[in-house]
Amino acid sequence: MLVVVLDSATPAVTAAVAAVRRDDVEILTLRVSVDARAHGELLAPAIQGVLADAGVKPGELAAVVAGLGPGPFTGLRVGLVTAAALGHSLGIPTYGVCSLDALGWGQPGTVLAATDARRKELYWAVYTDGERITGPAVDRPDEVAARAAAAGARRAVGEGAEKYELGLAADGPRYPVPEALAALAADRVRDRAPGEPLTPLYLRRPDATLPGQQRKSVLQ
């Protein structure tokens, strides 16, 4: 079964066509562009590109798999609205995967996965043998370091772990791994599970302040 895989939760704008078979998952074609500010420009051409490279017509796709974040909101939404619209127009299910899970996937031992949340914070989760044991959450680097240590993390993966000193060696993938995204949704694809609404893992409330006292109606 052919699926399109995409993730826009980090600066890596990722699109792939994957084959989900009974016993394995294979990435057939892949485009990754690292640019934190151009998700909206890069993603659609990348999807068209991976489909063309694979010689796959949109109508041949069985599902859309998308990283749900956490990630900076604007770029994250580009990926999720793209995935939702693809699924809608093709009449195929959409499946979400936590983007941090696609960093922790397949990592032996206990590892921290961390990506840049901007505002001097990190999105993070801790994995033991690929299974998430803590998170996802968004916190300051010192807090992340403390909680990752408490969870027993010995290593770190993800660009966030390179950006800040967390007391852990960062030696794994920097961005969500395309094969992991496909693998983490593979059972749902094979089972033809009902499609899921792609709800972003925002983890933060919108910035919005109620009007100040002095700006309220003067008639009250």
Partner: peptide
């Protein structure tokens, strides 16, 4: 609004790609 525009633009592109 930049972030708001981007949702519609990305959706339109996806519909355009899917439906050619």
């Amino acid at each position: 609004l930049a972030g708001a525009l981007l949702v519609g633009v990305a959706a339109a592109k996806a519909y355009a790609v899917a439906a050619d």
